[in-house]
Every structure is written in structure tokens, then in C-alpha cells.
Design a protein around this nucleic acid. Structure first.
Lengths: 150, 150
DNA sequence: TTGATTGGTTTTATAATGCAACTTAAAAGA
DNA sequence: TCTTTTAAGTTGCATTATAAAACCAATCAA
């Protein structure tokens, strides 16, 4: 590899997002962070990731504003990795990935973790709607490219 | 690398999804497919991806059921890559990535492509709701792990 | 039927990844 | 206080994935 082309300058927001969080590990770390993990060792154990890679990914996620390094809390913890607002706003991405995986990557009887509303225990729903609230699919939409890109 | 650990057996649907589409290129190819691209050369030109990598990714996406290889359409086209239903169902993932990128990865005046409803030209909205329709965020939810995982 | 285009494969170089061993500093224990 | 343990990395090396470019075969246009 001579160096991956950056998509920072791409006019497509999806492309820029993937440029920032589109590698193998970053979203898995974010998933674990949503799940309440905060410490280096917790991520390491949960993901089975090599220490140097985890170190690099955490550093990158912090530098990009998705995680922040909180110096300490109580009881001897040195530092914690916590989701920033930017990181928490990846919630819809995680939910969308989860829904797709549930539908296509599990057998009918297969056990899976599930995301539920805290109060009711009912599953969470994600849907795409037009401004008027009507649910829509890909065929109801189109991409407006920026002029210079055409 | 000695071979990335597969997450096929993970109980978390997000993890399995990332195992399938979590590499650098796959979702970019899917994005282009949503945008109407179907031919090898179109993807190559749009993404600036090396041919061997594109070839490998397309083969993988087909083998996983996200794209399908349609033999021909009209006028001597050899073959086309088209989204399957499984692939089209990645739409919410793409929209979620797009919304996040729009919010955090563009300057206020910066040009960007936008996803709009075809009929009205109005932007598309994505939201997460409880079963009763109330919009909710990450703090309103929790993960139910499978028993054996605990 | 010749030349160009499409859709790849092969080859080779380099960057990313993973593993294991090592380091450092803080926490816990005696 | 001094030692031991643990957490959180860093470093070095082997391996794999990726990229670029050259090559190749089947179409397609003329």
C-alpha cells in the first residue's frame, strides 16, 4: 500500500464519515463505548484487539473528537475514554447496522443481543421519513450532487 | 496481520454487520450502487480504487448477497452489479452515516451533496423511536445481552 | 479484421496489522 | 516505606492486505 487515498475532500458526507470511522475497529470501539466500556483494558478484552492497534485507534478517535480522555474519576482509575457528543451522535449509525445485522446475519432461532427502550423493554425502531413524516425508501430519494462535481 | 478475528459468531448484530461490510471500500461501493452505478469501470472511476481491490470487493459483496451479478441488460453490456434486497436494506446505514458526516465533517458554508425526497426535493430525515413513536436517544436505551454471554 | 474498450488477473513494492516482548507509572499490599 | 502487581501502553519483528502498474482475454465499434 502506498497510502490510502483520503476522502476528506469528498463532497459526499457518507464518504467523509467512512474516512473517519470506516476502518475495521473504530466502530466496534464505539459500540463498546455505547455499551459502557471506558478503559483500555476493557476494550482490549472485549474486542480481542492487539494493544498497539487499540492504542492507535483510541488515539485517533480522541484526536477526531469522537472519544475524549477524562483524567480520572474515583477509586484509583487513571483515565477513561468517553464518548463525546459527536461520538454519541453515531447512535443512529449503530442502530442501523444493528437492525441490518439482525435481519440478515442471524438464523431465526439464533441468540442475539438486542437494543431496547430502557423504560418499557420494547425494541427500538429506526426509520427514514420524508419531512411530512411519510416513511420512505431508497427509490423515493435522490442525491443532489454539488455543481462543481458534475 | 495474521488474519483478523471473524465476528461471525458474535452475539451482537452490529458486530456481525461490521464483519461483513466494515472494511474501507465495501460501503463506498454500496453508496455508489445506490447512486446508480453498476459497472466495474464506473466504480473504478468514481472511487479511484485499484482494480484488483475492486475486483476482490465486488466478488465478496456478491458472495455475501449484497450485490448480484446480472448478466446483461441491453445492447451488449456484459454484466452489471446491482444491489440485492439485502443491499438496498443498507439504506438506513448510508443515511445515518450521511447525516453524521453532514453535521460534523463539513464547514458551515461548505458544499456537499444532499439526499432529498424525489418528489418534493426536501431533505430526508432519519430518527430513532420507541414503539410508541416517541423519539429517543442512546440514554433511553439499553442492550440486553444474551444469557450465555454474561 | 483491426483497434480500442471493458473487465479483469498477475506481479511487485509498501503500508497496515498482529503478536509478543518490553517499558513505565500508578495502585495495592506488606 | 518498600515491594509487588496491574494497567496502559511502546517497540520490534513477522505476516497480510493494499496499491500501482503491467499484462491479458473477451467484446465491441469501425
Amino acid at each position: 500500500m502506498v497510502g490510502r487515498r483520503s476522502l476528506k475532500g469528498d463532497y459526499c458526507p457518507s464518504a467523509r464519515s467512512l474516512d473517519v470511522i470506516g476502518d475495521w475497529w473504530s466502530l466496534l470501539i464505539v459500540r463498546d463505548a455505547f455499551d459502557g466500556l471506558t478503559r483500555f483494558g476493557e476494550f482490549e478484552k472485549s474486542l480481542g484487539i492487539a494493544k498497539n492497534i487499540l492504542s492507535d485507534r483510541l488515539r485517533t478517535l480522541v484526536s477526531r473528537g469522537i472519544l475524549e480522555l477524562v483524567p480520572a474519576r474515583e477509586g484509583g482509575i487513571r483515565q477513561e475514554y468517553r464518548l463525546t457528543e459527536m461520538g454519541r451522535d453515531l447512535f443512529p449509525v449503530m442502530v442501523a447496522l444493528r437492525q441490518w445485522g439482525e435481519r440478515y446475519l442471524f438464523g431465526p432461532q439464533e441468540q442475539r443481543s438486542s437494543l431496547v427502550e430502557r423504560e418499557t423493554g420494547m425494541p427500538v425502531r429506526l426509520d427514514i421519513r420524508a419531512q411530512n413524516g411519510r416513511p420512505i425508501g431508497p427509490d423515493d430519494t435522490m442525491i443532489l450532487k454539488v455543481p462543481s462535481q458534475e
